[in-house]
Computed example of a mutant assay.
Amino acid sequence: MKSIYALALAALLAGCGQGSSDGEKKLVIGATMLSMQNEFVVSVADEMEAKAKAAGIELIVVDAERSALKQVEQVESFIAQGVDAIIVNPCEVEASSPAVQAALNAKIPVINVNSETTVKPTSFVGSDDVESARIAMRYLAEKLGGKGNVLMMHGFMGQAAQIKRDKGAREILKANPGLKLLAEQSGEWDRAKAMSLTENWIQSYGSQIHAIFAQNDEMGMGAVKALEAAGLKDKVIVVSVDAIPDALQAVKKGTLNATVFQNAREQGNKAIETAVAAIQKKPFEKEVLIPFQLVTKENVGTFLK
């Protein structure tokens, strides 16, 4: 029922956007987001909405609820509605590719934001996820003096960020033979699942654990909670990626050792800018890469609002 209602509402919104009081056609952009349960994704969507509103653009945001199949259906619905551009925050590299292909086939500009697909969109706006993991793992290597046991918590397997953060982490592990990957498993970008996974790891490895690299902050926060409950937080270094508000507060408090700042606002902003440029056939970058930055207790103040 929910998806039928959402599509009906989207159709209504699209209809509303077909004209403005001065007779000029209002631009309509459809956006399908990986999951509106994910704080980082919500931040990107919020910025896109603010940017669109300021520019007088009708933006229809729908939640793919982590389903690539649903994402393909949502894009097909946007195509049927005749939107001017589509922004895709892909659920999966392969399984979300038909959504991008469908938009391209319909001659509608498609912008991938934050995550990638095998099918190349009109433009990609995001950050180099390989680099985020390199930054995080270099920090761990330095803190451990190049020696120790590391656990790696993956995001959803098969998603671009998971694949690339895995690649970056392995590069640093290879460059530091004293670091041993003790175990790795998916926490599915989820705080509660990550907490449960960390509890299992504590039972299996206990004091052998020296550090945890969580591929996003939601999982990093879950790991911290489990370590605190077990009285191990002071003995284990935890670093994650995104610099969501919760994680920044945890870095300030010293419970999370570090996070890697990914600029959600800039990604949302540039996604709308690029979509508009593509609609209006103005020059735009095929790839907009926004740099990551390491956040520790020393510099966290500059990232806190």
Rank of each mutant, 00 (worst) to 15 (best):
M1G: 12
Y5T: 07
A8E: 14
G17K: 01
S20N: 12
D22V: 07
M33S: 05
L34R: 14
M36N: 09
D46W: 01
M48C: 05
A55Y: 07
A55K: 15
I57D: 01
V61C: 12
S67Y: 07
Q74L: 02
E76S: 12
F78N: 14
V83D: 00
A85C: 00
P90I: 06
A95K: 10
I108A: 04
N114P: 04
T118I: 10
K120H: 14
S123F: 00
F124S: 00
G126E: 00
R138A: 05
G146P: 05
K147N: 07
G148W: 01
G148I: 13
G148E: 02
F156R: 12
Q159G: 13
A160R: 04
Q162G: 13
R170Y: 15
K174E: 14
K174G: 12
P177S: 05
K180D: 12
L182A: 06
Q185L: 05
Q185V: 02
R191I: 02
A192T: 14
A192L: 14
I209L: 03
E218T: 03
E218R: 09
A223E: 11
V238A: 11
S240P: 09
D246R: 15
A247N: 05
V251S: 06
K252C: 09
T255F: 08
L256H: 03
L256E: 00
V260E: 12
I279R: 10
T302Q: 10
